[in-house]
Design a protein around this nucleic acid. Structure first.
Lengths: 252, 252
DNA sequence: ACGAATTTGAAAGATTTTGGAAGATTATGC
DNA sequence: GCATAATCTTCCAAAATCTTTCAAATTCGT
């Protein structure tokens, strides 16, 4: 690698992490620490970074715009398994509405090869494919709900009311034999609009959602075509749902 | 291959990658490194590229206002100064339309304490405040334009047509006495809608934009109330703009 | 087609950059 | 406050890269 390119890489890396040790940097750009030191002094004279003992720090940190909640490790493997299984259910080139929620976010992650058209109100999902450009992503409008990165409000409802898609991939707070419930009342209207606009409705629900009830009622079981869950889901409830004519996919 | 054609190819390649090693370039155009060296010295005297040890780098990297890249350190300090200066122009609690573009992105960064209502079609801007929750952000709908992270298309235009804001903070590809131009035709309609919906229009343009013309015409000078730029902006053009009644703010 | 002028590729020597080591300096624990 | 460890600076040899030079190849004009 070239000196200049390397220095740019170091600067970019520091932009991302704000601070990095010498060892970290030398591994990142794959040169000796001596060279990193030299690069850092060069970058320091240009005013871009400040050296410290043991590393360097960016002068004007720029908050990284493309991070999705780092603390999302809850039931990660289950959610990934569900995500993959659900992605398998979709046909190439389909138009897919993706709900906002950590579980369905993982569905979106595995959709790239299906080259779908994704319609979503979730910023994290949209961020997934801004870089690649392989997947067409349509965002609804709306007010950004803090922390979750979901677009809500009348603008969002209106957007989805106008849209028709092949599939809606939904999440929820809980499911019982009485129906599906969710914790955020703001989302209910949007989710209803999503489901109305889709020919097929898939719910992605990990086993912790089974038998649980949240505050707001979303829909009855008759609105659901498919449920994707993991192998820890209670057998009786799965059997009962199947008896109601719902396809239940157990992710391995 | 001809010498000139080869040099053009080298220049084009460098435009794309910003810097490249001698080996890379010699493979790219399929000549010896000696020849590449000669070409590079020629290109250097013409001011187009700068040679470095081990390769070369483009002097004026295609300063595309609308490309968000990790290594966007291009005119970073100027853009930050402009961002701060422009943020100062706004009143607390105002509703502000923020255009999609690297310069105005920096305006958004400094807006938190004004507690504004932000309306935008830029994913990076929206991502800025999803975590904090201090600022209300409204997103237009639209199709995500790959790489740029901008929402475009009829849905976006329609969203902005319905919205009225106190201020619009805009970017552009270039400004001359004939008016403001932009490189992406897709954005023009959206930007026009943004400007129509605002009582005051502020353009943030770093000095490289002055005297430059992009492909698509956006608006005449009469539509502009304020321009924020940095101190390297050419004095004559600044004076001429002021003579037209436009407030020009020079960021320190 | 022939010779002059230019361009190209390669080699030799000069220069710069790199990686490591020794000694100096700064942080850390007790 | 002192000993210890970590980190930094300085220096040097090795590696990479650059410049210069020159013969072969190509292009151009006639």
């Amino acid at each position: 690698m070239q000196a200049e390119e390397r220095q740019a890489k170091i600067a970019a890396y520091l932009q991302k992490v704000e601070f990095a040790s010498l060892e970290e940097l030398s591994q990142e750009v794959d040169v000796s620490q001596s060279t990193v030191r030299r690069d850092l002094t060069a970058l320091e004279t240009s005013g871009m970074v400040r050296r410290t003992h043991g590393g360097a720090r960016i002068v004007n940190p720029r908050s990284d715009e493309f991070i999705f909640s780092a603390r999302d490790t809850h039931q990660l493997t289950e959610k990934e398994a569900i995500g993959m299984a659900c992605a398998h259910l979709l046909q190439p080139q389909q138009s897919v509405i993706i709900d906002a929620g950590t579980t369905v976010y993982h569905v979106a992650r595995y959709l790239e090869e299906k080259k779908p058209q994704i319609i979503t109100n979730s910023l994290p999902v949209a961020n997934l494919y801004t870089a690649s450009g392989q997947v067409e992503v349509v965002m609804s409008g709306g007010v950004v709900y803090p922390r979750l990165g979901v677009l809500v409000g009348p603008l969002a409802v209106e957007s989805f009311s106008k849209i028709h898609a092949d599939v809606a991939v939904m999440s929820a707070g809980g499911i019982t034999m009485e129906g599906v419930t969710n914790s955020h009342g703001l989302l209910i209207e949007i989710q209803k609009a999503m489901m109305r606009g889709s020919r097929r409705v898939i719910f992605c629900l990990d086993h912790t959602k089974f038998g649980r009830q949240s505050i707001s009622f979303l829909c009855g079981l008759e609105s659901i075509h498919t449920i994707v869950t993991d192998h820890q889901a209670p057998h009786e409830l799965v059997a009962a749902l199947r008896a109601k004519g719902i396809e239940v996919v157990i992710a391995p």
